[in-house]
Design a protein around this nucleic acid. Structure first.
Lengths: 214, 214
DNA sequence: ATGCTTGGATAGTGCCGTTATCCAAGGAGG
DNA sequence: CCTCCTTGGATAACGGCACTATCCAAGCAT
């Protein structure tokens, strides 16, 4: 399959595919001669994956490259590869340690992990981007003067733990080792907008149940 | 309070504040004379809200303007105002009705709403952006060849319904009517990254519980 | 009066994802 | 063999977005 066909079957413009090749999101095709390169089904699959991450998941190109780099890294074992790929995701803004709201949020999150008994997460706290994201989000809330109780945060966390269990159960149903990492990453990226949509729908449903349509 | 002070107290550069004023994210100050405008605490609060939506929530400026327009729209009742504001959020890409995956996803989502008994959501389906987002996300998954079972989707939906109940409970604890709309919108925007972070943390916790650190 | 500050208008910057333009080298048809 | 079309690769251009810097005239303080 040549570039033109890859473009036709994927619905992505040739110029864009060339761009992805340049950016290293797509491995180069098998060079037949100076002016011809041959692509296969694996390229098509990878291209669709890239598009999904960018369009549906909204990830920037640089992040996609990084994530795929981890997914393809054969020097790591599966669980490390998965962890590395997931950690590349979040596009974190570093929390400002000077900010008093940030420091308060850090204490609050630490207390939360204790309460929930998430011992492993606590060990990972200093390095995990998810931990930092959480701190930033909590701090933003506090900065705006919203003081929801600790219990609310814990309730959200418990629900998301349920979600995470579903996530991992699903990954386990996938037989191939190679696919598992990809599945997990894709799951993390694509299910986020899905969960968000489900939440909004549920809000609409619950809101009309409580207050009607007026 | 003048522009310079507003900038100092919010940590936002004056040039940026001017930009927000121009874009209509911030109401103009009280014009004292040709070269002086006076801002108050309400401006500061609004500015912080805008910043949180943009920085933490990651919303584009145009969306923020639209959302705030609905929040401020006195011609609507509370619940309509809230609904309008929430519907302005999602930055939806329209699903392509021609695409077979999209049509399959539509049937699947409809079946899901039936199964869950979300009758109200079903009525809103044709107009709700959340519904369309969900269809797009499900279609993207199917297009990549992932065929998770219907039950998994339903489980996620039930969990997000729990989340939505927490969301609305929290809004109800807020006394002021005026604040309720703002709280709900802010909640929708700011808790999204928070939930996302909680989910990733939970994944890390659950993953190390199941597979250890290797 | 004079020098500094203010708000407003306008233009410029940097980044990012994408797309258009060129070009030389093949390959296909006569 | 010659011509014409297509190919892939390099490079430049584009459009959108969130800011940011520059000017400017009008006030205020000293």
């Amino acid at each position: 399959m040549r570039l033109a066909e890859l473009s036709r079957r994927s619905g992505v413009a040739t110029a864009t595919i060339k761009y992805y090749l340049r950016e290293g999101l797509l491995p180069p095709g098998r060079q037949v001669n100076t002016t011809t390169a041959e692509y296969d089904e694996e390229h098509l699959r990878r291209l669709r994956l890239v598009r999904a991450m960018i369009q549906v998941g909204g990830l920037p190109v640089a992040t996609v490259r990084e994530v795929l780099g981890h997914v393809d890294d054969d020097s790591l074992g599966r669980s490390m590869r998965l962890g590395a790929a997931l950690w590349a995701l979040p596009q974190v803004q570093e929390p400002d340690e000077e900010d008093e709201y940030v420091r308060t949020a850090q204490r609050e999150v630490a207390a939360l992990l204790d309460r929930l008994g998430w011992q492993n997460a606590k060990l990972l706290a200093t390095v995990s981007p998810a931990y930092r994201s959480l701190v930033v989000a909590v701090a933003a809330f506090r900065r705006l003067g919203y003081a929801w109780g600790f219990e609310l945060l814990a309730s959200y966390a418990r629900l998301m733990h349920e979600v995470a269990r579903l996530d991992l159960d699903f990954v386990e149903t996938h037989p191939s080792e190679a696919e598992k990492v990809e599945t997990a990453v894709l799951g993390a990226v694509l299910t986020e907008p899905m969960l968000q949509a489900l939440r909004r729908l549920a809000q609409e449903e619950e809101s009309t149940r409580r207050y009607g349509f007026e």
